[in-house]
């Protein structure tokens, strides 16, 4: 019963937290690991490019997934009086704002 009650909180908070943590991970390069495609090598945390480009996208995803899971799990333990205020609106509003922010951050590609 408790798990059923916390499902909406977990799902909604996960969507919000994933978007926010992913944005922070990209902006601050908080990659959990780095992939070097030319060498087909993984490295823990952020590594500089070696003999070709370094890919951080997988590491950002891992950071966001673990961070969002932890935040959503914690939110699921909050009292019902608090979680009742976490409506489904947040599950699309915050991710939408994050996506708009990414479009803004990448504007230089489109304005050249």
């Amino acid at each position: 019963m408790s798990a059923l009650r916390s499902t909406p909180t977990f799902a909604i908070v996960f969507a919000v937290a994933f978007a926010v943590v992913y944005l922070l991970a990209v902006e601050n390069n908080w990659a959990l690991f780095t992939y070097h495609p030319a060498l087909e090598e993984f490295g823990l945390w952020v590594e500089k490019p070696k003999d070709g480009p370094a890919m951080y996208w997988y590491g950002w995803l891992a950071t966001a997934a673990i961070g969002a899971f932890g935040i959503a799990a914690l939110a699921s333990w909050l009292p019902g009086a608090v979680t009742e205020r976490i409506g489904p609106l947040w599950s699309w509003l915050i991710p939408s704002l994050v996506m708009i922010n990414f479009a803004y951050l990448l504007r230089s590609f489109f304005l050249r």
Binding site: T7, P8, F10, A11, I12, F14, A15, A17, F18, A19, Y22, V26, W57, W60, L61, A64, A65, A68, P88, S91, W92, P95, V98, M99, F102, A103, L106
Partner: peptide, 18 residues
């Protein structure tokens, strides 16, 4: 932009399911 949108989209899937 595609890689970031897809990432954010994946995070929305549990809410979508719910």
């Amino acid at each position: 932009l595609k890689e970031h949108l897809v990432a954010v989209g994946m995070g929305m899937l549990p809410a979508y399911w719910y």
